[in-house]
Amino acid sequence: MNALREILALLRLYSQQFKTTFASMVQYRISLFIWMISQILEPLVYLIVWSTVSNSSGGSVGGYTARGFAAYYLVLMLVNQFTYTWIMWEYEYRVRQGLLSFALLKPVHPIHSDISDNLSSKIITLPILMFVAAGLALIFKPTAAFNWWAGLVFIPALILAFLVRFLIEWTLALAAFWTTRVNAINQVYFILMLFLAGQIAPLTLFPNWLQIVADILPFRWMLGFPVELLLGRLSHAQALLGLAAQFAWVIISLVLIRVIWRAGVRVYSAVGA
């Protein structure tokens, strides 16, 4: 009964946060538009580069044809949009401006407004990006070995990818409690993300040892894995193993958040809020 009341209260919070996020976002239509262009351009550049490489090396690189790359990067664009967060910059700003004090005064864990804020902005931006991806599909004519089974498993994989990425980035964002130089940490993170999540190239194009590293670290499970899954490039065993890895990372990051959040608040409340 109590748990149910908690959930209902959180749902109300999430739906109210959606209205707030929506109202804030429409205030900045132009910057939203520019930001979406950058979200589209990055995978588009990789797509064009890899298609060219693939065409000039006999029609295929590492098992991807030009149209295979098109499928990979269009799906990646959407998955990236779905799992993307900006919390690491946000936190640095919050700590610096003392905004966190207000969050700490509220009788609810601040992660909830962040989750709902992120989900809300996705509900708003995803339809636009899907429309763009559909347009690009007409130009680049992607092909993939899509099958229904993969499509079905893709949905939990996508949700888990969002959770892993959100929780890991939220944990990393807490670095702002200890240092004002969060940008350096963010840079390292984005480089790792670029190579190990399958952004700069599909992971199967990398040497074997690097693929093993990618399997151990969380990055692949935030982005590359659901993409490969939807394109039908994974066996059933690989897909199930992937879901297990994602699940494990959710648990690991939840534990990390709990520990680091407490330590961070202790530091914040020791040195001056």
Partner: peptide, 24 residues
């Protein structure tokens, strides 16, 4: 705190009040 703001800058205060309603 007279020198700090909790209200969301870009939206009307009424919307921030609604957010506080669900938080509390």
């Amino acid at each position: 705190m007279g020198q700090r703001n909790q209200l969301v800058w870009d939206i009307p205060a009424a919307d921030s009040f609604e957010l506080n309603r669900v938080i509390y």
